[in-house]
Simulated scan of single mutants.
Amino acid sequence: MTESLTASLAGAAGDIRLVVLDMAGTTVADGGLVERAFAAAAAELGVEPGSADHAQKLRYVRATMGESKISVFRHLFGDETRAQRANTAFEKAYGDLVADGLVAPVPGAREAIEELAGSGRTVVLTTGFARVTQDAVLAALGWRDLVPLTLCPADAGGRGRPFPDMVLAAFVATKAAQDVRQVAVVGDTSYDVLSGVRAGAGLVAGVRTGAHDDDAFHAAGATHVLDSVAALPALLRTGAR
C-alpha cells in the first residue's frame, strides 16, 4: 500500500462527516416504555401476564433491544399475520405512552446534536420503530426540524438493525461523506453497534444510557464506549482515535 493511500484511509477514518444516532435509549429517554408496550402486544396475542411464556418472550425483547420491532415479533409469534397484529398493538401502545408525555431527551442529547451540526457534520436519527411511532416521538420532543433526515427500517428497504441498511441509506441519501469511514454510528445496543460495524463506519460507539452494557458493545465490535451521546462532540474534537 502506498504512503498516499495509507494517509487517505487514515484521514477518512478520522474525519467524521456523517453521524448516525439511534433514538430510544441513545438520544431519547423513554423509561422502559418498550417493555410496557410489549405487554400490550403480548396481551393482543393472548400471552398470559406472569406466565412462563410471557417471561420468556420478555427476555427476548430485552435481549434484542435495538432490532426492528417487526423482526422481533416475527421471531416471537411465528406467522406474519400474528407478528403484524403484535406489532400494530405495540406501536399503538408505545404511541399512546409518548402522547402521555413519557419521553424526554437524554440529558445533553439535543445540545450534542446541535454542536455536531454546528461543526459542519450531518446528523441523522434512526430507530427500530415504525415511522408513525418515530414521528410521534419527534413531535413530542419538538425535534421534527432538528436534523435533516430521520430513518426507520421501512425507509431502508424494510430491514432494520443489525443489518447495515439504515446507516448505508443515510450515507447515500445525505451525500455528507465521501467514504463510509467518515461515518460515526452511535447507539445503546449491540444491534446498533453491529449495524455500524457491518456498514464499515469509521467510528462505532455504544452508550451507557440504554439497554446494553460494555461487554455487549465490545463483543459486537464497538470502537468506543461512551457514558452518553453528550460526550460524542468532545470525542470528535479530539480526532476520534
Score class of each variant (00 low, 15 high):
residue 2 T to G: 14
residue 4 S to L: 14
residue 6 T to E: 12
residue 8 S to V: 14
residue 13 A to Y: 05
residue 13 A to M: 15
residue 17 R to E: 06
residue 17 R to P: 02
residue 18 L to W: 02
residue 19 V to N: 01
residue 19 V to H: 00
residue 20 V to K: 00
residue 21 L to S: 03
residue 21 L to Y: 09
residue 25 G to D: 06
residue 25 G to E: 08
residue 26 T to A: 07
residue 28 V to T: 02
residue 28 V to F: 00
residue 32 G to D: 02
residue 32 G to Y: 07
residue 32 G to L: 01
residue 33 L to C: 05
residue 34 V to E: 05
residue 35 E to W: 12
residue 36 R to N: 15
residue 39 A to R: 10
residue 43 A to G: 10
residue 43 A to R: 13
residue 45 L to K: 07
residue 55 A to C: 04
residue 56 Q to W: 06
residue 59 R to D: 07
residue 61 V to P: 04
residue 64 T to E: 08
residue 64 T to L: 14
residue 64 T to S: 12
residue 65 M to A: 12
residue 67 E to K: 13
residue 67 E to R: 14
residue 68 S to M: 09
residue 68 S to A: 09
residue 74 R to S: 09
residue 74 R to E: 08
residue 75 H to E: 09
residue 78 G to R: 01
residue 79 D to A: 07
residue 79 D to H: 03
residue 79 D to Y: 05
residue 79 D to K: 02
residue 82 R to D: 08
residue 84 Q to P: 03
residue 84 Q to S: 07
residue 85 R to S: 06
residue 88 T to H: 05
residue 89 A to L: 00
residue 91 E to P: 09
residue 91 E to L: 10
residue 92 K to H: 15
residue 96 D to P: 09
residue 101 G to A: 11
residue 102 L to D: 11
residue 102 L to T: 13
residue 108 G to L: 09
residue 109 A to C: 10
residue 109 A to V: 06
residue 110 R to P: 01
residue 111 E to F: 01
residue 111 E to L: 01
residue 113 I to R: 00
residue 113 I to E: 04
residue 118 G to Y: 09
residue 118 G to A: 13
residue 119 S to F: 05
residue 120 G to T: 09
residue 123 V to E: 02
residue 124 V to N: 02
residue 124 V to W: 11
residue 126 T to S: 07
residue 130 A to F: 05
residue 131 R to K: 03
residue 138 L to A: 15
residue 140 A to E: 11
residue 142 G to T: 14
residue 144 R to K: 04
residue 147 V to L: 03
residue 149 L to C: 04
residue 153 P to T: 00
residue 158 G to R: 04
residue 158 G to H: 08
residue 160 G to V: 08
residue 161 R to S: 09
residue 168 L to S: 03
residue 169 A to K: 01
residue 170 A to H: 09
residue 176 A to Y: 03
residue 179 D to R: 10
residue 179 D to A: 01
residue 180 V to F: 05
residue 183 V to M: 06
residue 183 V to F: 13
residue 187 G to A: 04
residue 190 S to F: 15
residue 191 Y to A: 10
residue 193 V to E: 00
residue 196 G to F: 08
residue 201 A to Q: 04
residue 202 G to W: 13
residue 203 L to G: 08
residue 209 T to L: 11
residue 210 G to F: 00
residue 214 D to S: 10
residue 216 A to S: 14
residue 216 A to Q: 14
residue 217 F to L: 00
residue 221 G to M: 15
residue 222 A to L: 00
residue 224 H to T: 12
residue 224 H to N: 02
residue 225 V to I: 10
residue 226 L to K: 10
residue 228 S to W: 05
residue 231 A to Q: 09
residue 233 P to A: 02
residue 235 L to K: 01
residue 237 R to S: 15
residue 240 A to C: 11
